[in-house]
């Protein structure tokens, strides 16, 4: 029996086959998947905000920010036997759920999340294999660590696999 492992908002979790891992209702948040094809282990983070250093007070939840979430996920995977050099990434999310005529910096949270996630993956030398980002639709994503397929469901644009 395979199980589906859930990742909540601002949460991080790991998965090995035959289980899959899933997060629901990504809007401006970005789902980041790191996986090791040889060791057959993967992890997912549901990132809400681009940078922990921009915040006004210390938060204990590392899963919330792109910089701390990617580092935490990376460390967790290495601890479980993944090899840093083999890690690959897929990402999805970062939508602009609402269109405003006066697009202030704050309202551009989705695009800023995407930029930050890409930057921090690059810093750790993790290649980004596939992504489905931007737009203005919410996404539910599910990753299968056996096939490395990321299934992306949207309300208005159907389902796709990257």
């Amino acid at each position: 029996m395979s199980e589906m492992i859930k990742v909540g908002i601002a949460d991080i979790n790991l998965v090995t086959p035959p289980n899959t891992i899933r997060t629901t209702g990504l809007g401006s948040c970005v789902g980041v998947i790191l996986y090791d094809e040889v060791r057959k282990i993967a992890g997912m983070a549901h990132v809400m905000l681009p940078q922990s250093t921009l915040v006004k007070s210390a938060s204990t939840n590392s899963g919330k920010f792109a910089d701390t979430a990617i580092k935490a996920l990376y460390d967790l995977l290495l601890k479980k036997g993944a090899t840093a050099k083999r890690l690959k990434a897929k990402i999805a999310g970062g939508a602009q759920m609402f269109q405003f005529s006066s697009a202030s910096e704050m309202m551009r949270i989705g695009p800023r999340n995407i930029e930050s996630v890409k930057y921090h993956l690059n810093q750790l030398g993790i290649p980004l294999i596939a992504s489905d980002v931007g737009g203005n639709s919410g996404r539910t994503i599910e990753f299968n660590p056996a096939t490395y397929h990321l299934t992306i469901k949207t309300v208005n644009k159907g389902t796709k696999i990257i």
Binding site: G25, G27, S28, L49, S59, Q99, M106
Partner: peptide
């Protein structure tokens, strides 16, 4: 006002960006 017809989580999380920076 801006409208969206979509997943509730995707919509509501947008309202959390201010508070989430300082609180869980």
């Amino acid at each position: 006002p801006a409208t969206s017809i979509d997943m509730a989580g995707a919509i509501l999380s947008f309202g959390l960006f201010e508070i989430s920076a300082v609180s869980d």
